[in-house]
Computed example of a mutant assay.
Amino acid sequence: MRNRGSMILMEKDSVALIRRYREGTAYYVFPGGGIEKDETPQTAARREAFEELGLVVKVKECLSVIHYNGVHFFFLGDIEEGVLGKGKGEEYTEENGVRGTYQPLWVKLEDLSTLDVRPKEVAEKVQSLYRINSEKPTEKSV
């Protein structure tokens, strides 16, 4: 069991996910990974976003905490700099591919419910958050 920190990064109507292909199965995960010694869940999530996505992020509030083979923290965040897909973490440099493939990508928020996103309960919270934010009235100039 290992505790993990993960990021939820949204841009317009999309969320950053990693498409995993492992042992014949394709699924999607939020970028994140294990919390190292002397790291907080927030600093682990920030480090993992850089390693896996190539993005420097600002960590905001925790949207969800899941207890499954350790404690998994999911933080909302803002992109400060970088380009999605430029990560250089060990998952991209592993030569034998034992852990499968990793493909960072933007996924439309409306498509989350049609994909195998893990954990599903976090994907559902993200969709709910998006619906709430997209329904807020905007001020119009007179």
Rank of each mutant, 00 (worst) to 15 (best):
K136E: 13
R22E: 13
S14H: 11
T93C: 15
T114I: 00
V57C: 12
F73Y: 11
N3K: 03
A44T: 10
I8W: 01
M1C: 12
H67T: 12
V59N: 01
V117I: 14
R20A: 02
G24R: 12
V98H: 06
E23V: 13
K120A: 11
M7C: 01
V107C: 11
V29W: 02
D38T: 07
K60A: 04
G5T: 03
T114C: 03
T40I: 05
F30I: 13
A49I: 06
K120C: 08
Q42I: 02
V29Y: 04
T114G: 03
F74N: 09
S64E: 12
E51W: 09
G5I: 01
I8G: 01
D13H: 06
Y28V: 08
S6R: 03
N69T: 14
L17A: 10
E52L: 08
E51Q: 14
V57H: 08
I132E: 05
H67A: 06
Y27F: 15
G87P: 02
V117E: 14
F74A: 09
F73N: 00
C62I: 10
D13R: 03
A44I: 07
E48I: 01
P104Y: 00
V126P: 01
Y92C: 10
T138F: 12
E39R: 09
E36L: 10
K120I: 06
A45D: 00
L9N: 00
A26S: 15
F30Q: 10
V29F: 04
M10N: 05
L63K: 01
S113Q: 15
L76Q: 05
G33K: 01
G97T: 06
P31I: 01
A45K: 00
L109R: 10
N133R: 09
E61V: 02
L129A: 15
G32D: 11
A45G: 00
M10Q: 09
E124W: 11
S113A: 15
L115K: 07
V59T: 02
L84A: 14
K86D: 10
M1Q: 12
K58W: 03
L115G: 05
F74V: 11
R131N: 14
E95V: 04
Y102K: 14
E90N: 12
H67W: 06
A49T: 07
D111K: 14
L112Q: 03
F74R: 07
V71K: 00
S128G: 13
N133K: 08
G33P: 02
Y27H: 14
H67I: 13
I66D: 01
K88G: 13
E91V: 12
G54E: 03
Y102T: 12
R4M: 12
E110D: 09
K125M: 08
E80W: 02
E11Y: 05
K136L: 13
A123M: 05
L109W: 08
S6W: 01
Y92T: 08
S134L: 15
A16N: 04
R99Y: 15
Y102G: 11
G32P: 08
I79R: 11
P41L: 07
E39N: 07
K58N: 07
S14G: 09
G89W: 04
E110M: 06
F75V: 07
P137A: 09
A123L: 05
L63D: 02
K125E: 08
G97A: 04
I132P: 01
K60F: 02
L17H: 10
A26T: 15
G33N: 03
V107W: 04
I132M: 05
V117Q: 12
T101E: 08
K86A: 11
